[in-house]
Amino acid sequence: MKYLLSPILSFYFFSSGYGQPEIPRYFTQKKNFNEALHKIVHEVGLDSTWNAGEDGMETISFAVIDLNSKHPVLGCVNCGNFIYPASVYKMYVAMEILRQVSNGDFSLSRQYIVKSPNDVDRSKEISYDPRPLLRAGDTVTINYLLDLMITRSDNAAANCLIDVATRDSINRTIHEMGWYGSEVTRKFLSRKLEDPGYDTIKSTETCALHAADFMYKVYKNELINPWVSRQMKALLGRQLDTTKLSLGLPHNTMYYHKTGWWSIYTNDVGIVEDGNIKYIIALFTPVTEEKVSLQMKELSDRVYNFISLLHH
């Protein structure tokens, strides 16, 4: 099945759980680029297969887009593998909220009253962030919820914004982008507290290819429109979690990203900009943060050095 996104973009051939998503035609692929990424993944020990419990045997999902050439070069290691993204999928929620704001459906300053059971957090995802946990009855703005959801990865804020945007609208936009298989199916709460119809639905999944394409659209100001793209980039640039791929980047590098971690899953997706060095990196792992932290740091460092050598 083909999906036409716009007159200036090529056809997509994405499917929803029916097979591997195909790569958009605006990306170039090079054999030596892919081989180099496979070598990096092997040398840092992330080319294994892990037991993901109910999810079966699982591998990483990894993609890098080199933005320093005339045409973006995409490198993949299992980048079409759908995997649990944890909080990374909050960026899809933010996209839809910003799309609706851009359309004039409501403003960023619109007030919202938090209701149970959305107020699930009992501790802060980022312990040093001074903002209090959301509680039922709190009145906050959409803008405040967006910032909490992306920069602190606040689950209560995400639940509220999923209600505001609605899953139907979020997924309709995801489909318009061609990201079939990356639908937002769940809130960040237990199934027994889910809305009727969502208590038995499959968990949300995404893949490195879709996540990297999301960041590419942000980079190109093509995520819905330039306003949405720039608002999204501003949020991603204020990310408070610097414990994953950030660790392998030089100190003054600007990294616009969204992280996610839950149970055995540890993930990070973003845009790296350091002078003339520009690339997108998306890594999803079925490994606990404690076990994969050093590997993520080393992989990030090696990818940065590899991209740097390509253009010096």
Rank of each mutant, 00 (worst) to 15 (best):
1 M>D: 06
10 S>A: 12
10 S>L: 10
20 Q>A: 15
20 Q>S: 15
28 T>W: 08
30 K>G: 02
32 N>V: 08
32 N>L: 09
32 N>E: 14
38 H>E: 09
42 H>Q: 11
44 V>I: 06
46 L>G: 08
47 D>M: 03
55 D>Y: 06
55 D>A: 11
58 E>C: 11
67 L>N: 02
71 H>Y: 12
72 P>E: 01
74 L>M: 09
77 V>Y: 12
84 Y>A: 05
84 Y>L: 09
86 A>S: 15
87 S>I: 04
92 Y>M: 08
106 F>H: 11
111 Q>N: 11
117 P>L: 07
119 D>L: 06
120 V>T: 12
120 V>H: 00
123 S>P: 00
126 I>Q: 13
127 S>L: 13
136 A>E: 15
142 I>E: 06
142 I>S: 10
143 N>P: 06
143 N>T: 12
146 L>K: 11
147 D>H: 14
157 A>L: 04
157 A>C: 03
159 N>V: 13
163 D>E: 15
163 D>Q: 13
169 S>V: 04
170 I>A: 08
176 E>K: 13
177 M>N: 07
179 W>K: 04
179 W>P: 00
181 G>N: 06
183 E>Y: 12
187 K>L: 14
195 D>G: 00
196 P>N: 03
197 G>A: 07
199 D>M: 00
203 S>G: 11
206 T>L: 02
212 A>T: 04
219 Y>R: 00
224 I>R: 05
228 V>W: 01
228 V>Y: 05
231 Q>M: 15
234 A>Q: 13
237 G>P: 01
240 L>G: 00
242 T>S: 07
243 T>I: 00
249 L>K: 02
249 L>W: 01
251 H>N: 12
253 T>Q: 07
257 H>Q: 12
262 W>D: 12
262 W>N: 15
263 S>P: 01
267 N>Q: 05
271 I>P: 07
280 I>L: 01
280 I>F: 05
281 I>C: 07
287 V>N: 00
295 Q>I: 06
